Computed example of a mutant assay.
Amino acid sequence: MKNLTQDQWKEAVENTEDAVILDVRTEEEFIEGYIPEAKNIDIYKGQEFLDEVNKLDKSKTYYVYCRSGARSAQACALMHQEGFENAYNLMGGITEWDGDIAK
């Protein structure tokens, strides 16, 4: 897992053909606003989170975020344990995001 700054993360997402943006916040947080194109899988759901993550294509590159960067760092670590080689954490999370927000 690698932590990326906002600028590194944006550039990587734009330049990665198979990029998947993954929001690991709660559904309630997600509904309040999310980074466009993000898929929401709530890390607080424990085993259900792992079950959903394991349905994802491990060959793709995942850009993971949460509110502040802590849950997404944990999610990246869990994904790595599950065999995902390319999972990147957004440092500062959506709180520090200065890009577009969808609702």
Rank of each mutant, 00 (worst) to 15 (best):
E37V: 14
C76V: 01
N15V: 15
H80A: 06
M91D: 10
D18T: 14
R67A: 08
Q81G: 03
G46P: 09
A102W: 08
E85L: 09
Y62G: 03
R71K: 08
A75R: 00
L4N: 01
V24L: 03
Q8P: 00
G99M: 08
H80M: 05
E85Q: 08
D42H: 05
L78N: 02
I94G: 00
T95H: 12
A19Q: 04
V64D: 09
K10M: 03
N3V: 01
I41A: 09
I41T: 09
T61N: 07
K58C: 09
D98W: 15
Q8K: 01
N54M: 12
V13C: 08
E29D: 13
E17A: 06
T16A: 09
F84R: 06
S59W: 06
Y62C: 02
M1G: 10
A102N: 08
N40S: 15
T16E: 09
E14K: 06
L78H: 02
E48W: 15
L4Q: 01
K10H: 05
A12P: 07
A77L: 03
E32D: 07
A87D: 05
M91I: 11
L90P: 04
K103S: 11
A75Y: 00
R71E: 04
L78I: 02
N89S: 14
R67V: 08
D98P: 11
L78P: 00
F30C: 08
Y34P: 02
I43M: 06
K55G: 12
D98I: 10
Q8A: 02
N89G: 11
L4S: 02
M91E: 10
E52W: 13
L4I: 04
G93F: 03
D18N: 13
R67K: 08
V64W: 07
L90T: 10
V20D: 13
D57W: 10
E96A: 09
G93P: 06
K45N: 07
A75S: 00
E27L: 14
A70R: 12
I35D: 02
Y88H: 12
K55E: 14
